[in-house]
């Protein structure tokens, strides 16, 4: 059905073009007013807060349900923020490295003990 309407519309445009070529007056059709597209629904702050209350009534850190909603606002980090982020990244990297070393040492000591036990 949709294809049929589309074809009719195309056929009408073609015949109108021919009519104009032949000098036959063509009734200009006003474009039908299109309904304005509804704006994408973004939850209002109140709604977000209400749903956050449902998710996390005591507000213990899970109240960021609207966090993923794009607001269009962008923020360039300040120098202080960038430095702080770098420090945190470095701390995470050193912590992971430190933990890997701890596991390595544990394995080393455990193996050494087992070898000593097996030998003795």
């Amino acid at each position: 059905m949709a294809d049929e309407n589309e074809n009719m519309g195309l056929r009408g445009k073609v015949t109108d073009a021919f009519d104009r070529e032949l000098g036959i007056p063509v009734e200009e059709k006003k474009p039908e007013p299109q309904p304005e597209p509804e704006p994408e629904e973004t939850p209002a702050d109140e709604d977000l807060q209400a749903s956050a209350k449902e998710v996390d009534p005591r507000g213990l850190g899970f109240d960021d349900v609207g966090e993923g909603t794009p607001t269009g606002e962008m923020h360039t980090q300040t120098e202080a923020e960038r430095k702080a982020q770098n420090r945190r990244n470095a701390a995470i990297a050193f912590s992971v490295l430190g933990f890997v070393i701890l596991v390595y040492l544990t394995t080393f000591f455990r193996l050494a003990e087992n070898l000593k036990g097996a030998a003795g």
Binding site: E73, M74, H75, T76, Q77, E81, Q85, R87, R88
Partner: peptide
């Protein structure tokens, strides 16, 4: 990546400048 989504208000939220300490 140097851009982050901002939070409303002009003041820098404290957690953006939090240190490992």
């Amino acid at each position: 990546m140097s851009d982050t989504v901002a939070t409303p208000g002009d003041e820098t939220p404290a957690h953006l400048t939090a240190s490992p300490r």
